[in-house]
């Protein structure tokens, strides 16, 4: 996962590895030499200092993390069916069941073509005043 992370940062952000190391270091100490509290502080400072780059790094970390085989296994241990690669397995889902899934209501309506008549838009005159107007006589026949 770490190699994949570095490759992704390099591929999408020129000089990104050095920039990342610089953002996270504390003085002469690299990130890996810091205490947990210092690391959290360093990440917070990074987030405040360069949000755009931080978001890129965060995305890279999250996506690399959640594709890792150990993490995929952990998701499954939570009780979820979860594929690392989506195909060819896919997911087995119960087919659409008319008894359970079909709408039982009769709600909903549509205006038939011959029912489309002018609506009174005078209450919206201010909202719509800058818009061009079109004739209703554009379509000839078939009405």
């Amino acid at each position: 996962m770490h190699q994949s992370l570095a490759e992704r940062v390099r591929a999408h952000h020129e000089g990104g590895i050095d920039k990342l190391a610089g953002m996270l270091a504390r003085g002469e100490k690299p990130f890996t030499a810091l205490s947990p509290q210092q690391r959290i502080g360093g990440v917070r400072r990074f987030e405040r200092a360069d949000l755009e780059f931080f978001n890129f790094v965060l995305a890279t970390v999250y996506f690399a993390y959640y594709q890792h085989p150990l993490v995929v296994r952990a998701i499954r241990q939570l009780g979820h069916e979860y594929n690392d690669a989506l195909q060819p397995r896919g997911y087995l889902m119960p087919a659409f069941d008319p008894q359970l899934d079909a709408p039982k209501h009769s709600r909903g309506y549509y205006k038939r073509t011959h029912e489309v008549v002018p609506v009174d838009t005078s209450v919206l005159e201010t909202l719509l005043k800058d818009l061009p107007r079109y004739s209703s006589a554009e379509k000839k026949g078939h009405e």
Binding site: K111, P118, V119, L128, S135, S136, E138
Partner: peptide
């Protein structure tokens, strides 16, 4: 839907 084709008739702020 049918009314999507008749906005000129419905309110005139888009064409039929």
């Amino acid at each position: 839907r049918p009314s999507d084709f008749r906005k000129g008739s419905e309110h005139g702020y888009a064409p039929n």
